[in-house]
Structure formats: C-alpha cells, structure tokens
C-alpha cells in the first residue's frame, strides 16, 4: 500500500517537536547567564557548579530516588507474588479483591491522594518518607500485577506440573521454574512502577511531609517563587543520564540481535 512518506514524516516531526520542546528549552536555559529564565543572554556553565551548592535541591533529588527505588522494589515483589497467588488460588472475596486492584489504575490520582491523606490522618501516621513511599507502593502494585499476569496467562501450565512430578516442592517450583519465565512481565511492571513514581506529582503532593521533599514538590514551590537555572542544570544532567542509558541498552539489544542472527 502506498503511503505519503512526506506527510508521515511531517507528522512525526511535529509531534516529537511538541513532546521535546519544553525539555529542550529547559536544557537551553541551563546555559544562560541570566538568573531569570526569560531571555537567553549568554553562555555559561556556572549553574552546573552552583547546583552542587544547592543542598535543598540535592536532598530533594536524593528523596526522589529513594522513593522511586524503594517503592519500585517493594511493589514489584508484592505485585509478582500477588499475580501468581491470584492465578493459582481461590479464596473468599477473590473477585472483590480483583476488582479493587483496578481502582488505582482508573480513578483520578487526586482521589487516591486525598483518600490516603485521610487514612494517614485517621491512623495518626506522621507524614514523611514512610507515608510517601507507602503511597507510591500502593499506586504501583496494580500495574505490576497486570503486567506479570499478562505473561502468566501465556505460560504453559504443564511446566509447573512437570517440576512437581519431578519432586520439586512448591517453593522450588516457584523460584526455579515459574519466576524465570515471568521475568519479562516483572521487568516491564518494574519499569512502569519506576516511571510512574518519578512522574507522580499529585499523590506526592498530598502524602509528603516535612523532610520528604521530592524533586517535583521542590520544583512546584520554586515555579511559584522563581526557578533558578541550577534546577535546569540538574534536569539536564538527569536527561543526559537517561539518554545515555537508553542508547547503551539500544546498542546492546542490537548486538544481541545480530549475534542471534549470525549464530
């Protein structure tokens, strides 16, 4: 079938320009001599040096990463276990539990945020890193479950049976037979949990407390009082790392592909 390649490319170009424009602007202004992010006045690298003196910004970055990692690891473990448990076993109200799991996926984040805030207040939990991480775990788990489940659905039930027949107990079967075949689902679930945690603003806004300021919350208050270009510098560095890693993984994937083809 004939496609208008020119139109296709224009369309792709426009959408990607839209998607990357705000990011490019942030990077551009990280090299700006002016303190105000308004007009580009001249080139400097000062903000990258300044960045390492801005303790509150670095603390916010650290908190962001801690929250993202801890919540990703915990929700991936719980999510994987649960996906398997929900498939294998029947228990009272299983259907209800199954339906409940979709709630964090579909309801507006703000409702989840305030409902967690209310429960924290009710239980007299002190808002801080713990409540923030718990909140992130609770919106990530369903995504992990759904991703692991999609792999689980396609798994050959006979493999498990075979392991059982060969005398492996349930734990062994799970760890040596089931788990390895779930890896793609677990990885995509973990990746999603990690991305969602980094991207979240709304739920963090309600569940963070003193001492658990994350990067987005820090930037939120800075947008109001004036963002200094050292924030731009930080974001640019983060983007650079992300890009580098994506490139590396793309190259590795390509090599693997070639290797498999030539073999």
């Amino acid at each position: 079938m004939k496609h208008n390649k020119f139109l296709d490319n224009i369309c792709l170009f426009l959408v990607f320009t839209f998607l990357f424009l705000p990011i490019l602007v942030i990077i551009l202004f990280s090299f700006n001599t002016s303190r105000l992010n308004i007009v580009f006045e001249g080139f400097t690298l000062d903000w990258y040096r300044e960045l390492f003196n801005n303790t509150s910004l670095l603390i916010a970055l650290k908190n962001t990463l801690i929250v993202a990692f801890v919540s990703t690891i915990v929700s991936t473990i719980i999510g994987t276990i649960s996906a398997y448990g929900l498939k294998k076993y029947n228990f009272p109200f299983k259907r209800v539990v199954n339906e409940l799991l979709y709630i964090p996926v579909v309801i507006p984040e703000i409702v989840l945020g305030i409902s967690l805030l209310c429960i924290y207040t009710l239980l007299k939990l002190e808002l801080g890193m713990f409540t923030l991480i718990l909140a992130h775990i609770s919106f990530s788990i369903p995504f992990v479950i759904i991703n692991v489940r999609s792999v689980l659905e396609n798994m050959d039930p006979n493999i498990e049976q075979a392991a059982n027949d060969l005398g492996a107990n349930k734990f062994k079967t799970f760890f040596y037979v089931v788990l390895p075949s779930l890896v793609p689902g677990i990885m995509s679930g973990a990746q999603l949990a990690f991305t969602l945690s980094l991207d979240d603003v709304v739920i963090s806004y309600f569940t963070a407390g003193p001492g658990s300021n994350t990067l987005p919350l820090q930037v939120y208050s800075m947008i109001k009082t004036g963002v200094t270009p050292d924030v731009n510098a930080l974001i640019s560095i983060m983007l650079l790392i992300i890009f580098a890693l994506l490139m590396i993984s793309a190259i590795v994937n390509l090599r693997k592909l070639k290797y498999e083809v030539t073999r």
Partner: peptide, 16 residues
C-alpha cells in the same frame, strides 16, 4: 531499563 536502575542505585548508595 535494567541499567538505568543500576546506575541510579549506585548514585543512591553514593548519596547514602
């Protein structure tokens, strides 16, 4: 993605 996580983890340990 695995690698992204790994590098971030190292950063985390450093700051920790």
């Amino acid at each position: 993605m695995k690698k992204i996580i790994l590098v971030f983890l190292m950063l985390l340990i450093l700051t920790g």
